[in-house]
Design a protein around this nucleic acid. Structure first.
Lengths: 131, 131
DNA sequence: TCACTTGTATTAATTCAATAATACAAGTCG
DNA sequence: CGACTTGTATTATTGAATTAATACAAGTGA
């Protein structure tokens, strides 16, 4: 599993790890059952404190993307499972609610919002791995 | 203009001010041309440093919601003006882009996202002032 | 005009999230 | 069984964001 950290992004290291794992799962480069590197191993590779990787793994677990088997490692969970999908939808729902609230504050009607999403979706066509 | 600050929200004071002004403008309680309280007056009322209010006003200005007339006060700008609307759309576009990126990472198709927004919009029907 | 009220700028203190240092707990698997 | 490898917990450090203290600048409008 390849992960790249850029130091001065303003983006916290643990978030960078989370995002890259998420992307690799979504893109199929990481499949259900695949084992992630042990915390210490990845930490050493990234020249980062093990706690930082631990935090990333913790977030990934609570997002339903991976499962931790105590002393046996961390594994990509089955994304097709109802539980994993439900978790993803739950998280996305939070984001959507925030967006709707903001649109309302701005007095922008729902239909305009939907149109905006259509447009941006078209513009942002190729989901690029790098940010 | 009534503004309420809750101390231990985790939400920065200046953000609370910004949000409440935004909401009052969106809801029509503040209209184009209305004058906001002078920085010092609002600061005293909220028992907060004038700089904190100044920051809120600065953000509101750069969001296109208010206009500052140097020594003559701060006024709600005309939200119908193309400039104000363009600014609001610009800000909303950032949020939308982030949401789309997240949905993609989660491998949730556009149509599901749109459906989710429709649903949440219905659920969240009455935009409540309090959060 | 010119005192007063407005927003601005600069610097410091404080708070809090992110990261690190270090030690602990526990299941695996030879 | 028991050493090893795994994730966990606790505490400290650091750095950035928030808030505050204080002084400045400038247009208004009586």
């Amino acid at each position: 599993m390849q992960i790249h950290i850029s130091a001065n992004d303003g983006v916290p290291i643990y978030v960078q790890i989370v995002n890259q794992v998420k992307y690799q799962v979504a893109s199929g480069r990481l499949k259900a059952g695949d084992e992630l590197p042990p915390i210490r191993v990845l930490a050493e590779r990234l020249i980062v404190n093990p706690n930082t990787v631990a935090r990333a793994y913790r977030e990934l677990e609570s997002a339903g993307l991976v499962e931790k088997r105590r002393t046996a490692g961390t594994y990509v969970s089955d994304q097709g499972s109802p539980l994993a999908r439900r978790e993803r939808v739950r998280i996305l729902t939070e984001r959507v609610d925030a967006l709707i609230a903001e649109a309302r504050q701005m007095d922008i009607p729902k239909d305009d919002l939907l149109k905006l999403i259509e447009n941006r979706h078209a513009v942002l066509k190729p989901a690029s791995p790098e940010e």
